[in-house]
């Protein structure tokens, strides 16, 4: 176990109800944005839970991933409001420019493309989250600009 992971675990009380928060923290610390088998085992041991119970929770929630993801996660809002506002062409442009489908990661490990439920920013639909940042009033053109910027940042 790495020093970093020990530090993450010790930031939480040994109480089973903190499981989701602990999993969020472990996933965030992984540059590939996912939970490794070791992470699940550590969380189970630390909280005194059966491994099956941790796996059970991880697979229920859409924000946890058991597969490596890109450095940047693009979450396109798939709500009806964004759909009406043109989210379809935004998603199509992302799929075209990245060469992947929703749910996949680019071979260079830079981007993962996901469709999410309503992000609650319907006033500026269509929207997506670029990691923690929300970007609104999207058009295929703006998508291209955002991808260019992110690629430059690396």
């Amino acid at each position: 176990m790495t020093v970093e992971k020990t530090a993450i675990l010790q930031g939480f009380p040994r109480s089973p109800d903190v499981l989701l928060a602990l999993l969020h923290a472990l996933q965030r610390a992984n540059p590939q944005n996912y939970l490794t088998p070791e992470d699940l085992r550590l969380a189970a041991e630390y909280l005194g839970l059966p491994l099956s119970r941790v796996h059970d929770a991880v697979t229920f929630y859409t924000m946890f991933s058991l597969r490596p993801r890109g450095r940047h996660i693009l979450r396109v809002c798939g709500s009806p409001t964004c759909h009406l506002g043109g989210a379809g062409s935004v998603l199509a442009e992302l799929e075209r420019k990245l060469g992947i489908k929703a749910g996949e990661t680019t071979p260079d490990g830079l981007f993962t493309l996901e469709v999410t439920s309503c992000l609650g920013v319907c006033g500026v639909a269509p929207v997506m989250m670029v990691d923690e940042e929300v970007v609104g009033n999207l058009t295929p053109k703006r998508v291209r600009e955002i991808l260019r910027r992110l690629r430059e940042e690396g």
């Binding site: 089973p16 109800d17 903190v18 499981l19 989701l20 928060a21 999993l23 969020h24 909280l47 119970r53 059970d56 929770a57 229920f60 929630y61 859409t62 924000m63 946890f64 999410t116 439920s117």
Partner: peptide, 23 residues
């Protein structure tokens, strides 16, 4: 407490299960 992406957690008994660290 933060959720992790599940619409059904807005339902009160599901929300309670989620705070307890369960599905």
């Amino acid at each position: 407490r933060m959720g992790a992406g599940a619409f059904v957690c807005g339902e009160e008994t599901a929300l309670i299960a989620s705070i307890e660290g369960k599905r």
